[in-house]
Computed example of a mutant assay.
Amino acid sequence: MKSKHVHYRVKSIYDDLTRSERKIAQLVLNEPEKVIKMTASELAKASDTSPASVIRFCKSIGIPSFPDLKLQLSAEKDAPVVQQYTDISPDESPEDIKNKLLGNAYQAMKETIQLVDDETLTSAIQLISAAPFIYVYGIGSSYLVAENIAQKFNRIGKVCICQPDVHLLIASLTSAPERTLFIGVSNSGETSEVLALNDLAKSRHLHTISITQFGANSLSKQADLSLQTVKSKEAELRSAATSSLTAQFILTDLLFHTYVLKNYDENMASIRTSRESVDQYKQQTTKKNSKFRQKYKTNKNKA
Rank of each mutant, 00 (worst) to 15 (best):
E31G: 02
E76Y: 03
I36H: 01
A79D: 15
L43R: 03
I55H: 13
D68S: 15
S50F: 00
I61D: 10
S74V: 02
M38Y: 14
K34N: 14
S60E: 13
M38V: 03
K77E: 13
E33K: 14
F66K: 07
K59V: 05
A52C: 01
D48I: 02
D48H: 11
L43G: 09
F66A: 09
K34P: 01
E76N: 09
S60C: 03
V81Y: 14
K45G: 05
G62F: 10
A44E: 02
S53W: 05
K77C: 07
P80K: 14
P32Q: 12
P64M: 12
P80G: 04
S53F: 08
N30Q: 13
L71A: 15
I55F: 06
K70F: 09
V81D: 14
C58W: 07
I55L: 13
A44Q: 04
I61T: 10
E33G: 06
L73H: 06
D68W: 04
A44T: 05
V35H: 04
S60P: 00
L71G: 10
F57S: 02
G62Y: 12
K59G: 00
R56Y: 01
T49Q: 00
E42M: 09
D48N: 09
G62P: 15
L43Y: 01
E33V: 05
E42K: 10
P67C: 10
A75K: 08
P80S: 11
S74A: 10
A52Y: 05
I36L: 00
K59P: 02
I55G: 05
V35A: 00
P51Q: 01
V35P: 00
P51S: 01
T39D: 10
V35W: 05
G62T: 12
L71I: 12
L73A: 10
G62A: 11
R56E: 05
K45S: 13
K77P: 04
D78I: 03
S53N: 13
F57R: 04
S65P: 08
I63T: 13
E76M: 06
K37E: 12
S47H: 01
A75H: 12
T39Y: 09
S65L: 06
V54R: 07
S60F: 07
A40Y: 04
S50I: 03
K37L: 13
V81Q: 15
T39I: 09
I36Y: 08
S41F: 12
V54L: 09
K70T: 09
I36D: 03
I55C: 03
P64F: 03
L73Q: 02
S41P: 02
K34D: 12
